[in-house]
């Protein structure tokens, strides 16, 4: 077997309306930079970052999606394999917050039932333009039993924390069933776009 540079592979997905900052969040996390000069994402984009959690090297494979309706046929095909999904809205834009409900419905329709979810209210550095209060963000998250955080890719607020909390939640779910780590790794290697390894090895 080829030597692996990681113990577990988690597949994450970023979704949300166009312009809320999905690509910027991902870029901040993967490259620790912020830039406003991003082109719009067409279809699907992809980044990798390895993090260490509880002594395990976890490779995060993160898919960044296009926000507009047209791309849903392309992007929803990624929902199935995702173990964690981040739903992003923009705290300075009411509509992007209202649409969170629509995105949640999308997840219900297309993702695995036990996928870990997290709502992010991005652009929280722009306090003077805020139209969605933090309380409303918290309320909708509570209502759906989902984690919530306000973030700023620009000011680097909560970006790392959001990803590690999501990863940890997945790890919690996985570790109970992870009797044989080697076995899991093989599952990861062979079936990169199917069920998460933990489930694959104990089915």
């Amino acid at each position: 077997m080829a030597k692996k540079t990681y113990d577990l592979l988690f597949k994450l997905l970023l979704i949300g309306d166009s312009g809320v900052g999905k690509t910027c969040i991902l870029f901040r996390f993967s490259d620790n930079h912020f830039t406003t000069t991003f082109i719009s994402t067409i279809g699907i984009d992809f980044k990798i970052k390895t993090v260490e959690l509880r002594g395990k090297k976890i490779k995060l494979q993160i898919w960044d999606t296009a926000g507009q309706e047209r791309f849903h046929t392309i992007t929803t095909s990624y929902y199935r394999g995702a173990m964690g999904i981040m739903l992003v809205y923009d705290i300075t834009n009411e509509k992007t917050f209202d649409d969170i409900v629509k995105w949640l419905r999308n997840i219900d329709e297309h993702a695995n039932e036990d996928v870990e979810k997290m709502i992010l209210g991005n652009k929280c550095d722009m306090e003077e333009k805020r139209v969605v209060s933090k309380e409303r963000g918290e309320a909708i998250a509570r209502e759906h039993g989902i984690r919530f955080m306000e973030t700023s890719a620009k000011a680097n607020i909560n970006i790392d924390r959001a990803f590690s909390e999501l990863a940890e939640a997945i790890l919690d779910k996985t570790s109970g069933r992870e009797a044989d780590a080697d076995h899991a790794r093989i599952a990861v290697e062979r079936r990169p776009s199917r069920a998460p390894p933990a489930r694959a090895c104990c089915s």
Partner: peptide, 15 residues
């Protein structure tokens, strides 16, 4: 590798 054409060629072709 199950690397599907839509991961890259959707954008190539559309644009």
């Amino acid at each position: 590798q199950e690397l599907r054409p839509q991961y890259y060629s959707f954008r190539w072709l559309t644009l």
